[in-house]
Design a protein around this nucleic acid. Structure first.
Lengths: 339, 339
DNA sequence: AATAGTTGCTAAAACATTTTAAATATTTGT
DNA sequence: ACAAATATTTAAAATGTTTTAGCAACTATT
């Protein structure tokens, strides 16, 4: 039944011409190769008629291009990354590229494996939210002159394109805002590691507090499956806290759940600001103030830079560092209860 | 600098042996082909030393296997699909398969294109949450004896494996629960189309109301970018409504936002239940009662069935229809305010 | 009338593998 | 010592493309 798929040879044989001719026509090089319009018509008509589609594996093998982009995020089930992935995917497809993706969960070894897998599959370019410890692997991609765009965070020792937000100012600004609202005992609860976005957020928080001579209260969380325990312990122990800045949406989601269960009222007992906006924060009562990242812009820049490099064959283009600005979306969770 | 990547020929030449030998050894067919252990050792050592990796494109071209699974979801930025994707991806990688994915946004044409793209890329199997209108395309995959597992919904006219939940009973059960709580004017607000999960949810809702002789109030939403308008109009117009069942998390997210903006209190003015659990619903005040789908189980079943088919070459295995059960997670949003 | 240029097409190589079929080397049996 | 059996290894074909280099057959130029 399922007859063997047609190959270019079948097309050529059935038309009694050379596969070279077919190939040229199908790749739009007919004029350049001075193929008669009669021939072009005949071939195109027949190809359409029998529904022939070139085998993309063979094509990739020969040309070295796979029309595939590798997308490596931290966790596709996190709405922040999910939304970016969605936007990138959309743009990529519109430009004839497919996406292969994976989540790192900030696991260095897994990320290395994935990079190797992608390399193995001959992806044409990489979009990566890198965990720590993959500098070498990414450097080696770059020496092989592979287009690589980092996002969400960057690697200070690697010269490549990246798209991030002004994390330090964003955290500084959010903290300043809390101070301005009269809070004196502002904690930072955050997933902590050496990634630039986290380092910068912590710095921003510290700068703001230093500026006002306020005490720093930082709770660094591991990247664990479950954050309940560590956050609960922290919130229970520090009675004086009147405001919390959460470093990521994940931290805040856990934190707010725990506040509910401990009977801590927002903002009456503790004011709250989170990084990364989401429906959960907008829906919350009171709605949660957030540092909203410009997701559309990020995706747009990422894919534009990458496509650019892919088209120019990466030649001549200088690397770009795009630093986008966030919005502090002020909502009820960060305003002192009226007395 | 970046020397050309090594090929199996280089390995063979450098060791003064045939590439056939190298291939056999690398594919674990040394014993079967009675290659001497001396030779095996020598080759493995050298391969490791120079870090040779076979070109997977050439391999796929020759063998017809790509070790890739195509994953087609409705919208990767929706936490329900994001979470399933994450779990599937994880399992797939552990079994040596990569994932290529895309979102359909319930667009029939886009889905057809994607299926063709995947076919073109020679994916070994498909996991699809199909929109309406792709029956033919999926049927044709199946006649080509491609493993296909559907999930979230199925296609009644297509005999293939699928993993879904008992949507009708779940909606029936949720509605029954609302009736039991004393609500008399229960609306269903849902994205509506011909997909089985939606049809079943509506049926379940209708059954429960019929059973109690209550009036049906169904608002069918288009799959639009923005649902604000249609939901707002509906909620404004029907003053008698005292409870709402939302058909999907997306509908509920919009609906609850709109309720806030209209000053409708949950549950004092209108009780709420949503399909698909998520952080947003758990965090909400009051927390939203949901019909929670067993995401881990779904992912587990999906990937197990697919891997099974891939390993057995799809021969002899009968198709499976897995119907999992949901949990009605009762929270504050569906309990009448105490008088 | 020979040369050069153009037009329209194609044979064969290359991409990197796996696999079939067979060749060569070694051992065993008589 | 020779045939048969067995143990190793390999040449060549096959997978489906693109691309290089060039062949014929005209037409135009000297």
């Amino acid at each position: 039944m399922s007859k063997k798929r047609l190959s270019i040879v079948d097309i050529a044989n059935n038309l009694n011409i050379s596969k070279t001719t077919v190939s040229f026509i199908l790749n739009g090089r007919a004029k350049e190769k001075r193929i008669s319009t009669d021939m072009v018509e005949k071939v195109l008509k027949y190809v359409k008629e029998v529904g022939y589609k070139p085998n993309s594996l063979a094509k990739s093998l020969r040309t070295g291009k796979s029309n595939t982009i590798g997308l490596i995020v931290e966790d596709i089930s996190n709405p922040f990354f999910g939304s970016i992935a969605r936007l990138i995917e959309d743009k990529a497809y519109k430009n004839g590229y497919k996406i292969i993706y994976c989540s790192t969960y900030n696991d260095t070894q897994k990320t290395k494996d994935m990079i190797n897998m992608f390399r193995d599959r001959h992806v044409d370019g990489y979009i990566i939210a890198p965990p720590q410890g993959v500098e070498e692997d990414i450097a080696s991609l770059i020496t092989e002159s592979m287009p690589v765009v980092l996002f969400d965070r960057y690697l200070p020792t690697i010269d490549t394109d990246y798209v991030v937000v002004n994390n330090q100012f964003s955290a500084y600004n959010a903290t300043q805002y809390l101070v301005g609202q009269g809070y004196k005992n502002i904690a930072l609860i955050t997933f902590a590691n050496d990634q630039t976005q986290m380092v910068d957020r912590i710095k921003g928080y510290q700068m703001a507090l230093k500026e006002h001579g306020l005490k720093q209260l930082i709770k660094e969380l591991p990247f664990a499956e479950d954050l309940t325990e560590s956050i609960t312990a922290f919130l229970k122990s520090r009675k004086g806290i009147d405001a919390v800045l959460f470093g990521t949406n994940r931290d805040a989601t856990y934190g707010i759940k725990i506040m509910h269960s401990l009977g801590i009222r927002i903002p009456e007992d503790i004011a709250v600001i989170s990084f990364d906006d989401s429906d959960a924060f907008e829906l919350h009562s009171p709605p949660i103030t957030t540092v909203a990242q410009p997701i559309e812009d990020m995706a747009e820049h990422i894919i534009t830079i990458l496509l650019d490099k892919l088209n120019n064959n990466g030649v001549g283009t200088k690397n770009q560092s795009i630093v986008l600005h966030t919005d502090l979306v002020v909502r009820g969770s960060s305003q002192p209860a009226k007395k």
